[in-house]
Amino acid sequence: MLHTFVAYVEDKPGVLTRVASLFRRLNINIVSLTVGHSERPGQSRMTIVADAPSNAGGQAGDRIRASMYKLDDVVEVDDIGRSPSVTRELALIKVAATAANRSHIFELVEVFRARIVDLAPDSLMIEITGVESKIEGLIQVLNETEERVLEVCRSGKMTMRRGKHSTGVLRAMGINGPEPPKPEAVQDNFADNI
């Protein structure tokens, strides 16, 4: 089962290793990991998507989060779970294309709301942002056409919780109501104070 965590960590050498090493030690595969500066001075922001084995039970998210907090350089961890959030990934895709067959790719790029950011005599580069499925969709379509995909570079997911919207807005956005209720206290009385 996939879990998405957003973590604020000290911007120091070795912190990425510590976080990555924790997942390795727990034998949990990191599906994607992005790091960059955050709005807080001296702290970086990570989005980590991890695939926890299903035998870890529904509590895997809590355990991973609790274990991350044990790292001295980790300041804050949010388990996004299924709460309303915006997720984006950026991909650069280089495709073999000549003047003769370029126009077909232009059409695809249009449909996927992507952009051409480089054009060479025998190749072109596409930039696309969106959710994972959108990026995978484009890659798949490209693969199914004549054009050869030469290179793919993906950023990995970046995730941010949505702001506090009224229920009406959420419904308009196609999201059901506010955050799903917390599991009952007996199961999980960790303070969710983040």
Partner: peptide, 11 residues
């Protein structure tokens, strides 16, 4: 203290 450290009264 660990941010997940809390003893809730209900607990």
């Amino acid at each position: 203290p660990h941010p997940m450290l809390s003893v809730v009264d209900s607990g």
